[in-house]
């Protein structure tokens, strides 16, 4: 995090080398985050590109990230992903249909097959819940890391994660639980 702060100070001075380093260091994780949330790699690439262009624009306008570079990048990525999702007309298929022909939900092949639809179900969650799910399960971040990025306490992230999983679980048919 100290390295992040040093990088932040350098980019505030419009240090081109530092700005190149920001792209090299954070592009992939921002791309994976957006990809997890929007589900489409092409769109994710475009939006990830926009996140970094937004950083340059913010510097140009004299409004650079103040405390956390990664927090700022994820916040922009979150907003862009949320805006994109809002624009999409989506329908959430019933998970009963998805799991009906699955012999077991622990079958990894089947999980991979139904994953896109699971992600559609994610869209029913609040933006904040989607954000925490993407950080915890998409990015594989720890509670502490997610808390830092979201500028919340670890306890708040635990509660948010709980509510998000509970909301998602409500979409699951009872027989699947028994199956698992």
């Amino acid at each position: 995090m100290e390295e992040d702060l040093s990088l932040l100070e350098r980019i505030k001075q419009h240090d081109q080398q530092a700005l190149a380093e920001v792209h090299n260091r954070y592009f992939d994780q921002i791309y994976y985050y957006i990809s997890y949330r929007v589900g489409d790699s092409e769109t994710a690439a475009d939006l990830a590109g926009e996140v970094f262009l937004a950083l340059v624009k913010a510097l140009k306008n004299g409004k650079p990230p103040q405390t956390s570079l990664t927090g700022w990048l994820y916040a922009v990525a979150r907003n862009l992903a949320a805006d994109h999702i809002k624009k999409q007309v989506h329908t959430v298929p019933l998970l009963e249909d998805l799991v009906a022909d699955a012999p077991s939900m622990t079958d990894q092949a089947h999980l991979a097959q139904i994953l896109p639809t699971i992600k559609m179900a994610l869209l029913e969650l609040t933006d904040e819940q989607q954000h925490v799910i993407a950080l915890r399960f998409g990015q594989g971040l720890s509670l502490a890391e997610a808390a830092k990025i979201m500028d919340k306490s670890v306890g708040a992230i635990k509660a948010l994660q709980h509510r998000a999983l509970a909301s998602l679980a409500r979409l699951l048919p009872a027989e699947v639980d028994d199956d698992g």
Binding site: Y32, S35, Y36, S41, A44, M105, T106, Q108, L111, A112, I114, L115, I118, L122, I133, F137, G138, H162, L165, A166, L168, A169, R170, L172, V176, D177, G180
Partner: peptide
Amino acid sequence: PLLFAAMLLADPNPK
């Protein structure tokens, strides 16, 4: 049900 949901959320093949 929560763990089952959590299991589904892992992205096995990130693009």
